[in-house]
C-alpha cells in the first residue's frame, strides 16, 4: 500500500507539473506595457512553487515507499529519527521560504507599485467607466474635453442616460460620448475612472493583465497602456447578482489614427 501511495503521489505531482510546464492552459499573450512584469513575476513564482511542490510530494512519496510496511506484514526494522531532529526542518523552511518571500516581495511590490501606486502619465486619455447590473458603459469627454457632472437621480436605463447626465442645465454633458465598447488607442496611456452605479463589480481584461473592483460610493482610478490592436473581452469578476456571468463588454484597441476616426464618428449622447 505504501508503494501504491508513493506511485500515485508521484504520478499526480508529475502530471500536474507537466501540464503547467507545457502551458496547455495558459495566460493569453500580454497586450499591455506593464503586463510583462506581471508575467515574469508569475513565471518566477511558478518555477519556485513548482520545485517546492514536486520536492515536497516526492519526499512524501519516497518516505512512504521506503518506510512503509509491506504485504500486510508488520515492519520490524528499527525506527530512526530524522537526522538532526526538527532543527533542519525549521532551518530549511525558514531559509528557503524566507528567501523566496524576500525576493517575491521585493520584486513583486515593485511590479504592483508600477501598476497601482503610480499616477497616470500626463496626457493620458481620460475615460469614465460605469458598471451596473449587468453591463459596462464608457464615457469620453467629447468635443469640449469636459465631462458632464454625474447626477445619480438622473440615471435611467430607460432613457439610455446611463451616467445620469443633465443635458438640460449642464452644457458640458451634451457632447459627452457614451458607448458600450471600450475603444482605446494603442500605445497611448489610458486613465480610467471606475464608477459603480449599484453594487460591487470588477474590471478584468485578462490580455491587459488588469483587474480592479468597482466599489459603490468610490471613484477608483486605474490606468494602463495597451500595445496590440485587437478586440478583447472585459468581464466582471465580482459577484453582482443574477446576470454576473453575462456582464461583459469588448475592449477594442485601435491604432491612434483609427481611434481618432472612430472618436470623430461618434454621436454625442444628447
Amino acid at each position: 500500500m505504501g508503494r501504491l501511495f508513493a506511485v500515485v503521489v508521484t504520478a499526480i505531482a508529475l502530471v500536474s507539473v507537466t501540464l503547467f510546464a507545457l502551458h496547455t492552459w495558459w495566460l493569453p499573450p500580454d497586450i499591455s506595457t506593464h503586463g510583462g512584469r506581471i508575467d515574469s513575476q508569475l513565471n518566477e513564482t511558478m518555477i519556485v512553487a513548482g520545485i517546492l511542490f514536486v520536492a515536497a510530494q516526492l519526499a512524501l512519496g519516497v518516505f512512504v515507499w521506503r518506510f512503509g510496511e509491506r504485504g500486510g506484514t508488520r515492519a520490524t526494522w528499527p525506527v530512526r529519527i530524522f537526522p538532526g531532529g526538527a532543527t533542519p526542518m525549521v532551518v530549511i523552511a525558514t531559509v528557503l521560504v524566507g528567501i523566496e518571500i524576500l525576493v517575491l516581495t521585493l520584486v513583486g511590490s515593485k511590479v504592483w507599485a508600477s501598476v497601482y501606486q503610480s499616477p497616470p502619465p500626463p496626457g493620458a486619455l481620460q475615460i469614465d467607466v460605469l458598471a451596473e447590473q449587468f453591463a459596462f458603459y464608457f464615457r469620453y469627454a467629447g468635443a469640449d474635453g469636459k465631462f458632464g457632472v454625474i447626477h445619480p437621480e438622473k440615471m435611467s436605463d430607460a432613457d439610455q442616460n446611463f451616467f445620469g447626465l443633465d443635458p438640460a442645465t449642464d452644457t458640458t454633458a451634451r457632447d459627452d460620448i457614451v458607448v458600450a465598447t471600450l475603444v482605446v488607442p494603442a500605445n497611448q496611456p489610458v486613465a480610467l475612472r471606475l464608477h459603480a452605479k449599484d453594487v460591487n463589480h470588477s474590471f478584468y481584461v485578462r490580455e491587459a493583465r488588469i483587474q480592479q473592483d468597482f466599489v459603490p460610493g468610490m471613484v477608483i482610478p486605474l490606468h494602463f497602456t495597451a500595445t496590440t490592436p485587437g478586440r478583447y473581452e472585459l468581464v466582471c469578476t465580482q459577484l453582482c447578482g443574477l446576470g454576473h456571468y453575462n456582464m461583459r463588454a469588448y475592449v477594442e484597441v485601435k491604432s491612434p489614427a483609427e481611434f481618432g476616426q472612430w472618436l470623430k464618428a461618434q454621436q454625442p449622447a444628447f
Binding site: 453591463a135 436605463d157 430607460a158 439610455q160 447578482g241 456582464m247
Partner: peptide, 12 residues
C-alpha cells in the same frame, strides 16, 4: 409598469 432586463440594460 416599466419593464427592464438587467442583463441587457437597454431593454426597456
Amino acid at each position: 409598469i416599466a419593464v427592464k432586463c438587467n442583463v441587457h440594460p437597454w431593454m426597456h
